[in-house]
Amino acid sequence: MSWILLIIGGLFEIAFASCLGKAKETSGLESTYWIIGFLVSLAISMTLLYKATQVLPIGTAYAVWTGVGAVGTVLVGIFVFKEPATFWRIFFISTLIMSIIGLKFVSSH
């Protein structure tokens, strides 16, 4: 269950980073809504990380949480914000995914 909470928390990390990107592109009331989305996503993400660390080691949990967020945010950048999908970006994102999976397998929980 802790792993599921951690993954969901990582998904909310993607959401808060994406909200920041959208807030930067907008102005006025629309920007305010994106900032509210950022704050809500941030609170949920941090709460789920906290819950997961009640069972999982903090180092593993934090690495996986940030890894999920990093991979997801890069993918959102590529598919939503039209950032370049160069060979090296895909290569290093792939190594990050393999590292996240590796941490799950070597964790005793």
Rank of each mutant, 00 (worst) to 15 (best):
58 I>F: 13
46 M>R: 02
4 I>D: 03
104 K>C: 05
59 G>H: 07
92 F>I: 14
65 W>G: 03
57 P>E: 10
86 T>L: 05
49 L>R: 00
39 L>D: 01
35 I>H: 05
29 L>H: 12
61 A>H: 10
80 V>Y: 08
8 I>S: 07
11 L>F: 12
9 G>M: 05
71 V>K: 10
70 A>V: 12
41 S>I: 01
79 F>A: 11
45 S>P: 05
63 A>R: 07
98 M>Y: 08
58 I>P: 08
37 G>Y: 00
50 Y>I: 13
32 T>D: 06
83 E>V: 04
46 M>H: 00
90 I>Q: 10
41 S>V: 00
56 L>E: 07
25 E>L: 15
56 L>P: 03
96 L>C: 14
93 I>T: 15
98 M>R: 01
70 A>M: 13
39 L>F: 09
35 I>C: 04
80 V>T: 03
25 E>D: 11
98 M>P: 00
92 F>H: 07
97 I>Q: 01
74 V>H: 05
91 F>V: 14
1 M>P: 11
22 K>N: 13
48 L>G: 04
81 F>P: 04
8 I>W: 04
106 V>I: 15
1 M>F: 11
26 T>W: 01
87 F>A: 12
50 Y>L: 12
77 G>V: 06
82 K>S: 15
95 T>K: 03
96 L>G: 11
97 I>M: 11
35 I>W: 06
42 L>V: 10
4 I>W: 04
88 W>I: 09
103 L>Y: 03
93 I>W: 06
75 L>V: 14
12 F>N: 03
82 K>T: 07
32 T>A: 13
76 V>T: 13
33 Y>Q: 10
24 K>R: 13
64 V>K: 01
46 M>K: 01
5 L>G: 00
42 L>N: 09
81 F>T: 07
33 Y>S: 10
108 S>K: 15
66 T>N: 13
65 W>E: 09
64 V>F: 03
2 S>R: 08
56 L>G: 02
27 S>R: 12
22 K>S: 13
54 Q>L: 10
77 G>C: 11
38 F>S: 01
23 A>F: 00
96 L>V: 11
2 S>Q: 13
50 Y>R: 10
34 W>Q: 09
21 G>K: 05
8 I>Q: 07
94 S>W: 01
6 L>H: 03
59 G>C: 06
77 G>E: 10
68 V>C: 08
85 A>Y: 05
23 A>S: 15
99 S>A: 15
13 E>K: 05
24 K>C: 04
47 T>W: 11
44 I>P: 04
89 R>P: 02
103 L>S: 05
30 E>N: 09
39 L>S: 14
31 S>Y: 02
86 T>S: 15
50 Y>Q: 09
67 G>F: 13
82 K>L: 09
